[in-house]
């Protein structure tokens, strides 16, 4: 195949792609010579062009229009959707619920994950076995995890209530998912159970990249185990922590499946999160324009969160 083209292409011959602003003849020659590279990229770029670039532009267009998908007209409404967003108590409530969920579930998941990773990193037997145990919920489909926990939370016959009563922590069965104040904590517990294993594995990988010499040196200097944890382990894990924090927060801000299965956003909309609210607006009320505006609002929040995290933590990352 293509024997004629099979010349050696050593990289330094290639003109730097940064310089030419207007395509010069040499760029064209280069493009023709490397035609197959574009072919390799074509299917991927076609999909990105349609389902990301075009989609984002279209979403932006929609957010300035009012459109019920069942009707052909899409009247232009300017910034109305965004203005409506600012005064929408329901969306505000959804934001607060999402922040509550994120603020509690992410630190819990990462903290417990770190604790287990530290325990597993000690000189113990069967660490592979324990690692597998704690990782099992991660590979369980989220829908199934939500179904199992919904059952565990059941009011009068739920397993959780039974053991809490046995341990004399509560006297009466709690109506976990139908109590406005308990529903979100219940969802959070499920999410933590589901994702602790992921934090654990990432932290384990981080722990194993810390050079042993640091600990030896600290021991020579007489540092206690707590000091070593506080002054060596935790700081040297900061890049792992940053990575986990960013992706966990992004994931938590988009929580949906647990809510859909366990609470349907209730009781009293107390577990209606942003994504659930957008889902309802778009696919139950068919208010596509307004839902698109919400999606951009959410995008802005996620972007801001990530920037803040990077800014705050960059100073702390040690290597």
């Amino acid at each position: 195949m293509a024997v004629g083209r099979a010349t050696v292409e050593s990289p330094p011959v290639v003109p730097s792609p940064r310089h030419p602003v207007t395509p010069s003849p040499s760029v064209w020659r280069q493009m023709r010579k490397q035609w197959s590279a574009y072919l390799f990229l074509a299917p991927t770029m076609a999909l990105f062009a349609v389902f990301t670039v075009l989609a984002v532009v279209y979403a932006f267009y929609l957010s300035f229009h009012e459109w019920n998908i069942l009707e052909p007209e899409k009247p232009y409404v300017g910034l109305d959707n965004y203005a409506r967003l600012l005064g929408d108590g329901r969306f505000g409530g959804a934001i607060l619920n999402t922040l509550y969920y994120t603020a509690v579930s992410v630190p819990l998941t990462m903290g417990i994950g770190l604790a287990i990773a530290l325990l597993l990193n000690a000189q113990i037997r069967a660490r592979g076995f324990f690692r597998t145990l704690f990782y099992l919920p991660v590979v369980t489909p989220l829908v199934i995890a939500a179904i199992i926990w919904k059952w565990l939370y059941a009011g009068d016959f739920g397993l959780l209530n039974y053991y809490l009563i046995q341990l004399r922590i509560i006297d009466e069965p709690l109506l976990w998912l139908s109590d406005p104040n308990l529903a979100m904590p219940a969802v959070i517990i499920t999410s933590v159970w589901k994702s602790v294993g992921f934090s654990m594995v990432v932290y384990l990988a981080g722990l194993q990249s810390i050079p042993e010499d640091y600990y030896d040196a600290a021991k020579v200097d007489g540092a206690s185990a707590q000091q070593r944890l506080k002054d060596i382990t935790i700081p040297l894990l900061s890049s792992t922590t940053l990575f986990l924090a960013v992706i966990s927060v992004l994931g938590a801000l988009q929580v949906f499946t647990e809510i859909f299965i366990m609470t349907n956003g209730g009781p009293l909309r107390r577990t209606t999160t942003m994504v659930y609210h957008i889902y309802q607006t778009a696919f139950e009320n068919f208010d596509m324009g307004y839902a698109s505006a919400m999606a951009f609002g959410m995008f802005a929040m996620m972007f801001a969160f990530t920037l803040v995290q990077l800014r705050v933590m960059r100073g702390e990352v040690e290597y």
Binding site: L62, Q254, I278, M288, A295, M298, F299
Partner: peptide, 11 residues
């Protein structure tokens, strides 16, 4: 960088 929520409706 683009969350799935933004592209969902247009897709």
């Amino acid at each position: 960088m683009i969350p799935g929520q933004v592209t969902l409706i247009p897709t």
